[in-house]
Computed example of a mutant assay.
Amino acid sequence: MSINVNNNNVSKPLVDNQKLQQQQGQSTNQAQAQQASVAQTAARSDSVSLTQSAQQLSQLHKKGSEASTVNQEKVDRLKKAIQAGDYKVNPEKLAQNIAKFESELFGIK
C-alpha cells in the first residue's frame, strides 16, 4: 500500500532536452580546458644553464686533470730556495706570466 503525502498526482515535468545538452556541452568544454592546462604544464621541462664563470671553472678543472705529471725535482729545488731565502721573484716576469695565463684561460688574445 502506498500513501500519497502531498495528495497530488501531478508528475514532475520532464527536463528540457536543449538545456540538458547545453549543460553537458559546458561540462565537456570545461573538462577539455582542464586537460589542455594539464598538458601544457606537463610539457614544460626544467633546464639548467651554467654561468660563464662556472663554464670557465669547469674547463680549468679539465685542464688541471689532464696536466702532465709534476716535476718533483723542480718543486724540491724551489722549496729549498724559498726556505733558504735565496728565491727572488721578478715582478715583471710574474706579471707577464699571470697575464698570459689569464689570456689562455679566458680565451683573450
Results as ranks from 00 to 15, higher is better:
Ile3Gly: 08
Leu94Ala: 11
Leu94Cys: 04
Phe106Gln: 04
Gln22Leu: 10
Glu73Asp: 14
Ser65Asn: 07
Asn7Cys: 01
Thr69Ser: 01
Val38Tyr: 13
Gln40Pro: 01
Thr51Cys: 09
Asn4Val: 07
Ile98Leu: 04
Lys88Arg: 06
Leu94Ser: 06
Leu78Cys: 07
Gln96Tyr: 03
Val38Gln: 15
Gly25His: 03
Leu105Asn: 10
Val75Tyr: 01
Arg77Tyr: 10
Gln23Cys: 02
Ala84Lys: 13
Ala39Phe: 10
Glu104Phe: 05
Gln72Ser: 11
Gln72Gly: 01
Gly85Cys: 02
Glu104Arg: 06
Ser45Asn: 09
Asp16Met: 02
Ser47Gly: 15
Ser49Trp: 11
Val48Gly: 13
Val15Leu: 10
Leu60Asp: 13
Gln52Asn: 12
Thr69Leu: 04
Ser27Met: 11
Ala99Glu: 04
Ala43Leu: 08
Gln96Ala: 15
Val70Pro: 00
Pro13Asp: 06
Val38Ser: 14
Lys19Pro: 00
Thr28Ala: 07
Asn29Gln: 15
Asn17Ala: 15
Tyr87Ala: 06
Gln56Trp: 07
Lys79Asp: 14
Ala67Phe: 04
Glu92Thr: 13
Asn7Ile: 02
Ala81Pro: 00
Ser58Arg: 12
Leu105Tyr: 14
Ser37Gln: 13
Ser68Met: 09
Leu60His: 08
Gln72Phe: 00
Glu102Asn: 13
Ala54Met: 15
Ser27Asp: 09
Gln96Arg: 08
Ile3Asp: 05
Gln22Cys: 05
Lys74Ile: 04
Ser103Cys: 08
Asn6Tyr: 02
Gln26Ile: 03
Leu105Arg: 13
